[in-house]
């Protein structure tokens, strides 16, 4: 058992990430995949990390959980979970936190479950790894958990193998496993990307209920701005390994600052109202970490680049809203209106 960690103020962030930088060894030079990523997660909060593939969402989360290979990965910066620096923890202690206090829901439920054991056995194994409880007790708890995540007939489902379940049921089994130790922090990496919209609605509903019933904090990684709009309290927008914009969901949707965020919002076809003749797309493709441009990484694709953009951009800050961009605050609304239209005047 871990001794209870001193957590004097219950409103303190349960996770503080500061200056996280991760680089991988390659057969040439080391490649920096994540550069200077900092954020807090408050108790009971849903923090959403958005970005396209290769932007470093998953790598930052894996390194926070200590799941990267130490032989090929260099991690620097600080990760403080409940007042404890966890990057420096020895493996043995980290294993006690992982799964028990921080749980992971991965994108593909089929690879998160082993095909050769029933889901009941897999959930019970997780419970018994962290708590001293009898086999029978663990199995009983597994049935309860499957019921809690809304699987029909949990006492029958517990003896099913993963291939006998549909995608949505499998994802719910994975969520049941993640919940088995009542984690304080739930990390969900694209939990609904592999699912159909109607099933996605069920899973998002479930995540919202968990936050309400258990007060868990959730880090939700996704590339779907719709999911972000619906779930997030706060949002981090990542591009090429850096946080280019962060703020509350209202700030990001009503008053976005960074041209990349504008582009992301504009490239989603609307579901109501008139259909635009063409979608406002971002030209080009994201850079790979090995050949980042000097200065602002988004500059080559940015419609608004000007001379300073070849230098590292400054971080503007105001009321918890930050953006990594040279565009001065007074020019933002005018430039943004050319991408998103005028109706989104700074709220």
């Amino acid at each position: 058992m871990i001794p209870p960690v001193a957590n004097p103020d219950p409103t303190d962030p349960i996770l503080r990430v500061g200056g996280l930088t991760v680089s991988f060894a390659t057969d040439r030079d080391p490649v920096t995949a994540i550069r200077d990523v900092s954020f807090d997660v408050n108790p009971g909060e849903i923090l959403s990390i958005v970005g396209e593939s290769g932007s470093g969402k998953t790598v930052s989360l894996l390194s926070i959980l200590g799941l990267t290979d130490p032989r090929t990965t260099t991690t620097s910066g600080s990760v403080i979970f409940k007042g404890k620096r966890i990057l420096e923890l020895p493996d043995r202690e980290m294993r006690r936190i992982r799964g028990r206090e921080i749980a992971l829901i991965s994108q593909d439920p089929m690879t998160a479950l082993t095909p050769v054991y029933t889901i009941g056995m897999q959930i019970a194994e997780q419970i018994r790894a962290h708590q001293s409880i009898s086999r029978r007790g663990a199995r009983k708890r597994a049935v309860e958990l499957l019921g809690e995540v809304g699987l029909p007939n949990p006492s029958e489902m517990v003896d099913r193998f993963p291939h006998q379940l549909s995608g949505g049921m499998r994802q719910r089994a994975v969520i049941a496993m993640a919940l088995s130790c009542n984690p304080a922090l739930l990390v969900a990496d694209e939990p609904t990307t592999a699912l159909d919209v109607t099933v996605q609605a069920q899973v998002l509903d479930l995540l919202r209920r968990l936050r309400k019933d258990f007060g868990s904090s959730i880090i939700l990684i996704t590339h779907d701005m719709g999911v972000v709009g619906e779930m997030a309290d706060r949002v981090l927008v990542m591009y090429a390994g850096r946080v280019v914009e962060s703020g509350t969901a209202e700030q990001i949707f009503d008053d976005p600052w960074h041209p990349y965020t504008w582009g992301l919002l504009a490239s989603i076809p609307p579901l109501r109202g008139p259909r635009p003749e063409r979608l406002a797309s971002i030209s080009g493709t994201p850079p790979t970490p090995a050949n980042l441009p000097p200065g602002c990484a988004f500059a080559p694709r940015c419609r608004f680049r000007f001379e300073p953009c070849s230098n590292p951009p400054p971080r503007y800050k105001d009321d918890g809203h930050t953006a990594l961009c040279f565009i001065p605050p007074e020019d933002r609304p005018r430039l943004r209106a050319t991408v998103l239209g005028g109706e989104r005047s700074a709220a």
Partner: peptide, 25 residues
């Protein structure tokens, strides 16, 4: 109707009534 109501929307963030279909295909 259920399919359309299940789509999360970034543009209109006010929660509209959602029909969550029960069960699987």
């Amino acid at each position: 109707e259920a399919l359309l109501s299940a789509i999360p929307e970034p543009h209109a963030r006010q929660q509209c009534e959602r029909i969550v279909l029960q069960g699987d295909l």
